[in-house]
Simulated scan of single mutants.
Amino acid sequence: MRNIATCYSEHAVRVSDSYCSGPLNKSYVSPNSIPAVQSAVSQTFKANIDAEKRLLVTVTWCNKLICQGFFLKLSRTNHPTTTGSHHRQMGKPKGSRRVGFEENGPANVQVCWDLSSARFESGPEPLGSFYIVILLADSQTALFLGDMEDNPNVRNLVSGYDIRTLSLVSQYEHFNGQGSNPISTRVRFGGSGSEHEIMIKCGPEEDGPRSPVLSISIDEKRVVRVKRLQWNFRGNQLKDIT
């Protein structure tokens, strides 16, 4: 099985994969093309604990064929080397667990979650009816992710804690499938504003060259077109999409 990974930020989109290579005079299309399926989504959030402390929370959602539940990683950004825990798997639909920032450090963070009624579509990321609560014992701060703020269990968990907002700073999506199938996702640049649709396609163009071409479109407007993929490439392009 071949796969393609997409990684984007507010100003750049980068994609590379060896299967984009092919002969100049030959179209690179598999007769049994496998539709691209989203297999994992990794989101990194930032929380301001106080004027000096920042916390990064990375949540990775995987489909059921890869794992059950989700993975969680916590990192302090006020440390000179940005210390952080390893990815810890929360494998049950509902539960709680104590974790620490260091692998062998004190377990001073409590994570509580409930995915038992979560709504999903085609991807591994839940769309609603779930919550993840992160309680920081040393600062009496609570971080909340989900849409069940009024759930009695959530209100009881965060009682007496100062609730802080989680701001999305980056997102990574992994797809399985053939490169000739378009891959699309929706995102808000900078964490605010309206959603944009990003589509990535690697393959021959209908009215263009027979050799494979990588194209990236935002809101159905092509912003990046990379030719001669058989040469292998490294680079970047900056486009204004406003």
Score class of each variant (00 low, 15 high):
125 E>S: 13
110 Q>A: 05
190 G>W: 03
2 R>M: 10
40 A>E: 11
44 T>N: 02
156 N>Q: 15
73 K>I: 02
33 S>W: 04
83 T>L: 10
242 T>D: 11
220 E>N: 14
209 P>A: 11
52 E>M: 15
197 E>C: 14
172 Y>T: 13
56 L>I: 04
67 C>I: 06
81 T>R: 15
152 P>R: 08
142 A>S: 07
179 G>V: 13
46 K>D: 13
143 L>G: 00
189 F>Q: 00
90 M>H: 06
220 E>I: 09
14 R>K: 14
103 E>C: 06
24 L>D: 05
138 D>V: 04
41 V>D: 00
164 R>I: 05
173 E>G: 06
183 I>F: 03
163 I>G: 03
125 E>N: 09
69 G>Y: 00
25 N>K: 05
204 P>N: 14
241 I>V: 15
165 T>S: 10
3 N>Q: 12
75 S>Q: 15
210 R>Q: 05
54 R>N: 14
112 C>Y: 03
7 C>P: 07
38 Q>I: 06
161 Y>I: 01
119 R>G: 08
144 F>I: 05
96 S>T: 13
43 Q>I: 11
62 C>D: 13
143 L>D: 00
230 Q>N: 06
77 T>F: 10
10 E>L: 11
180 S>F: 03
186 R>V: 08
193 G>M: 02
64 K>W: 06
109 V>M: 00
235 G>K: 08
51 A>C: 05
129 S>C: 06
126 P>Y: 00
67 C>W: 09
210 R>K: 10
30 S>W: 08
151 N>F: 12
112 C>Q: 14
111 V>M: 02
227 K>Y: 09
165 T>F: 05
1 M>G: 11
37 V>L: 08
201 K>G: 15
122 S>G: 08
64 K>V: 07
2 R>W: 11
90 M>K: 01
